[in-house]
C-alpha cells in the first residue's frame, strides 16, 4: 500500500496543477475588489488558503511543509496583524486613529475607497495564514501521533 503522505493519484495531481492557480487568482480577485463588489479580505484569505490546502491534499504534506512550515506560517500571520495595526497607526499620524489618509479616489477604480483596500490585503494575509497554520498544526499533530504508535 502506498504511503499516505505522498499524495493522491496522477489524475488528481494533474487536475490540481491546472486548477490551483485559478483558485488562488479568484481569492486575490475577491480581496482586491472587496470594496467594489461582494467579498473582502476575510473571504479572499480563506479562498487563497484553500488553494494551499488543495496542494497539501493532492501532493501530500511533505511537499508543502518543506516550503512553508508552521513557523513561517505563524510569522506571516503575525505580519498580517501588524500590517493592519500599522494602517490604523498611520491614520494616527495624520490626526486620528484609523483616519482615512488616502482619500476617496475615482469611483469604481481599484485604487479608491481609501484605506479599505490595504486593510483588506492585511486581513487576507492574517486570515489566510492563520487558517493555514491551524491546518498545518492538525496535520503535523496527527502524523506525529501515528509515528508514536508505530514506535510502540
Amino acid at each position: 500500500m502506498k504511503d499516505k503522505n505522498s499524495g493522491m493519484t496522477l489524475i488528481v495531481k494533474t487536475v490540481t496543477r491546472w486548477t490551483v492557480l485559478l483558485i488562488m487568482l479568484y481569492g486575490f480577485y475577491i480581496t482586491f475588489f472587496g470594496h467594489l463588489g461582494p467579498g473582502g479580505g476575510f473571504a479572499g484569505g480563506i479562498i487563497v488558503v484553500l488553494s494551499f490546502i488543495h496542494i497539501i491534499l493532492a501532493y501530500g504534506k511533505d511537499f508543502v511543509v518543506k516550503k512553508i512550515n508552521e513557523n513561517i506560517a505563524g510569522i506571516l500571520e503575525t505580519t498580517g496583524g501588524l500590517l493592519f495595526l500599522t494602517i490604523a497607526i498611520l491614520g494616527l499620524f495624520t490626526g486620528i486613529f484609523f483616519k482615512d489618509f488616502l482619500g476617496k479616489g475615482k469611483v469604481f477604480s481599484i485604487f479608491s475607497a481609501g484605506i479599505i483596500l490595504p486593510a483588506n490585503i492585511a486581513i487576507m494575509i492574517k486570515v489566510g495564514f492563520g487558517m493555514l497554520s491551524a491546518f498545518l498544526c492538525l496535520i503535523l499533530f496527527s502524523s506525529q501521533q501515528e509515528e508514536n504508535k508505530k514506535k510502540e
Binding site: N71, I75, T78, G81, L82, L85, I89, L92
Partner: peptide, 20 residues
C-alpha cells in the same frame, strides 16, 4: 486613550515575530 489598545496589540504581534 488609543494607546491603551495600540500598545498591547503592537507588543503581542511584534513579540510573536521576534520573540521566537
Amino acid at each position: 486613550v488609543t494607546f491603551f489598545i495600540i500598545l498591547p496589540l503592537f507588543a503581542a504581534f511584534v513579540n510573536a515575530i521576534f520573540g521566537r
